[in-house]
Simulated scan of single mutants.
Amino acid sequence: MSKEDFVSTMQRGYSFKGDAVLLGAAMLDGKAFAEAPVRLPLRTMNRHGLISGATGTGKTKTLQMIAEQLSEAGVPTLLMDIKGDLSGLAMPGTPAPAISERHATIGSEWSPSAYPVEFLTLSDEPGARLRATVLEFGPLLFSRLLDLNETQSSLVALVYKFCDDKHLPLLDLKDFKKVLEYITGEAKANVTAEYGLVPTTSTSLILRKLIELEQQGAEQFFGEPSFEMPDLMRVVDGFGAISILRLSDMQNRPKLFSSFMLQMLAELYATLPEVGDMEKPKLVLFIDEAHLIFDDAEKSLLDEIETVIKLIRSKGVGIFFCTQMPTDVPDDVLSQLGMKVQHA
């Protein structure tokens, strides 16, 4: 293919109206052509995406570049910072000849800029701590967090049902333990009469699982006040706020991280109104190390993830998964991701 044909083909493929995010320039035989920019329409950012590639191929840079341009367009973002290398967004970069040369090559102007960044945390990492109540997690996610089987999960569901019927608060792990001990102890006869047989043999195991969860720092996470979704959707002086959730100490606690993510997605879907297709999304999430969510996930949980991914785009929310291999994401979820960036 000649240079002219290549440039013409790429220009036709990436020609559209409206604002866009610049990903780079098309390349032929190792040469980039600034006149053939590769862009992503802003109005399609709620159709989700995948950024994949081996370690060191530039996934994080792509994520940062997209987040910066979304902020400039007034779109808030939430970034999951597993490796601790996204905090630089809060400070202007340092000019360097290599940076200027690269941007000139792809036809893009660059100047050092800082963005409105807020750091969040689930643990003792620096940042505003996010919290949620046990009730907000729901029995399915809470059972998954405890790694329970079907029988044990049924007892967790009974705790939730009992608290709902009796209008009891279920805020933190202490609340859950007290109710669990009550319905399997002194109130067992009454609870059995009202709800059926109570599987008390699971009580000791669940209590041990709760102790393990507390040792992982989950006690800091569960409780009030719960985080509010509008806090993630702020616009500061025309720039979309970039919320960075610091998770560098969560790699050895993947279930807590992944369960929190699923709870947050479900909360977003439940609280945001239907908006249909918009000129730009209301919020875009970037989930790094996406395999932490999907590893060892049961089918019921995967079905819930797939459902949320399918439906949340109508709420104006886009989700981008970042991982080394596309196969880290289940096929049913992968099929819902409209944009895919593969780093070689």
Rank of each mutant, 00 (worst) to 15 (best):
L262F: 08
S154M: 04
R234H: 04
S226K: 09
K174W: 01
Q216A: 12
T201S: 10
L155S: 04
H291A: 08
E212R: 12
S248A: 13
L245I: 08
A241Y: 00
Y160K: 02
I244C: 06
D164N: 07
T201R: 07
D295L: 12
L285K: 03
Y269P: 00
F239W: 06
D172V: 10
F162Q: 02
L197H: 08
L158I: 02
N149P: 00
K161D: 08
G196Q: 08
K178N: 12
F221A: 05
V159K: 03
A266W: 01
A218S: 14
M261A: 10
V284G: 07
K280T: 00
D165I: 02
V159D: 02
V179M: 04
C163H: 03
T203L: 04
L292K: 10
V156Y: 07
L168D: 01
N149G: 15
F176I: 04
S226G: 04
Q263S: 08
D165S: 03
N149T: 01
D249H: 13
I287E: 06
P199G: 13
S259Y: 02
D231M: 11
H291K: 10
D231I: 00
R234I: 07
L210E: 04
E219M: 09
D165H: 08
L272Q: 11
E186K: 11
G240P: 10
K174S: 11
V179C: 03
S153M: 07
E289M: 06
S243R: 13
N252E: 14
Y182G: 01
G185Q: 09
S202M: 09
S154Y: 04
M233A: 08
L213D: 05
E212D: 15
G217C: 06
P281I: 13
D288L: 01
L168W: 07
Y195T: 09
E289F: 03
Q215D: 11
T151V: 12
L173T: 14
L173D: 01
L207Q: 15
K282W: 01
A189C: 00
D231A: 15
Y195F: 14
Q263A: 12
D288Q: 11
S204Q: 13
T203P: 00
S226C: 14
D172K: 11
Q152T: 01
S226Y: 03
D231C: 02
Q263P: 00
T184K: 09
E289I: 11
S226Q: 15
A270L: 11
L283Y: 06
D172N: 15
D288S: 13
P230T: 12
G217F: 03
G223Y: 08
L158C: 04
F257V: 08
V191S: 05
I287G: 03
V275K: 12
L205K: 07
G238K: 12
E279S: 13
E228M: 09
H167E: 13
G238W: 07
T271I: 08
D237I: 00
